[in-house]
Design a protein around this nucleic acid. Sequence first.
DNA 1: GAAAATCCGTACCGTACGTTACGGTTCCGT
DNA 2: ACGGAACCGTAACGTACGGTACGGATTTTC
Lengths: 220, 220
Amino acid sequence: MAAPNDHSGEELTARQQAVLDAVLALMVEHGGDLTMTAVARRASCSKESLYKWFGDRDGLLAATVQYQASRVRAGNYDRTKLDASALRDSLVRFAANWLSVISSPTSIALNRFAIAQAGTRGSNLGAIMLANGRFAIGERLKPVLDAGREAGLIGFDDTETAFRTFIGLVGRDVQIRLLLGDALRLPAAEIERDAARATDQFLDLYGTGLSVLGRNPTNA
Amino acid sequence: MAAPNDHSGEELTARQQAVLDAVLALMVEHGGDLTMTAVARRASCSKESLYKWFGDRDGLLAATVQYQASRVRAGNYDRTKLDASALRDSLVRFAANWLSVISSPTSIALNRFAIAQAGTRGSNLGAIMLANGRFAIGERLKPVLDAGREAGLIGFDDTETAFRTFIGLVGRDVQIRLLLGDALRLPAAEIERDAARATDQFLDLYGTGLSVLGRNPTNA
DNA sequence: GAAAATCCGTACCGTACGTTACGGTTCCGT
DNA sequence: ACGGAACCGTAACGTACGGTACGGATTTTC
């Protein structure tokens, strides 16, 4: 009753998706100074329609964040034939995918918006980003880690702690540097290298004798 | 010539420092909606003085960031008597100090401001935060790592890579979660535990036989 | 084919805020 | 003691922008 439209689980028309695409493009291009007039002009629609469809500016931003989050969901990682090589491959692919996501201009712009808004009123953009970003990937990777543990390839007590160590090794200082405007370049080749390095370090820390062959390959 | 006042390396009067303290307090309390009127009222000064001292709003923000950065500089870490125990102590103290800094309300509020501003015009708040935060601590810790390598306690080819691995193990997802508004609590006891865990993991990855005694203590 | 609904483009309104201006007061140097 | 500089508090100005209203065009519905 408070909000004119509750877009929690509703479908979006193609026209409305086009509007959200325009919002994302403007976020990437012009950063934080995103005005309703600019959105309407970019999307070739009237401001009246914006307010009818999304309620107010915050509703438009929330819809944009959820819209983008719904497209990031990559394929799940199968846990068939889980030997040491398959586990490592899953982790490497996961790390590379996550690195490419957090280093994409869209993700950077969206996180900047959510962080800026988390600083002002305690709205929900930050919570949405966390739920669809950090916590969603946790729920997707933890089954892989648990399967690796059940197969005796890796060992740990707390899956959450192991997961956090992994994303720490993968992400390091990349996200904060990009958010602060550092001109850090992450070409595909470097993403692959970082993903492999982080995975090897993780297996070095948590692997049992079954999964890790040589010691200290990270020094190379 | 362009800016009314260039506060690059100038001294600040006590009155001006009180103003910046007021800015920091307002940032922590009320987040991003920081108005010049609120600053003047909080600091019990006139807006005219604010503009005379800091030029404009951006100048005030930049001065605040630099002012806070100049106070974070903790004591350097001595490299005397560098045995395995001293190296580990230095790393643990460093990690604990950095965790307490990045989880402090002031740091969170300041980083939110810098990130929000990095999203809009490409001003220098983000660069200042990076120079005084991420890169400053790198230059402080790298000598410790190099000394550890020279003593044969740890081994790596690239100091920068080793350092980035270390801060990844220490920080993990803490900073991004706090910036996005996650109600993550980091009491002193947990900071100490995390610092010790990260250091042990780092030594496990990069330590030679001289520094790490038992294998896989991180599983406990 | 007309009535109704939807939508675009634009103009408009109210407010918030950055910035400037000004009267009154305090403090310092001579 | 006197003049001036610095400063505080407040008022005023201009603009930007969120939100609303309206005329005209287009699409949908019966």
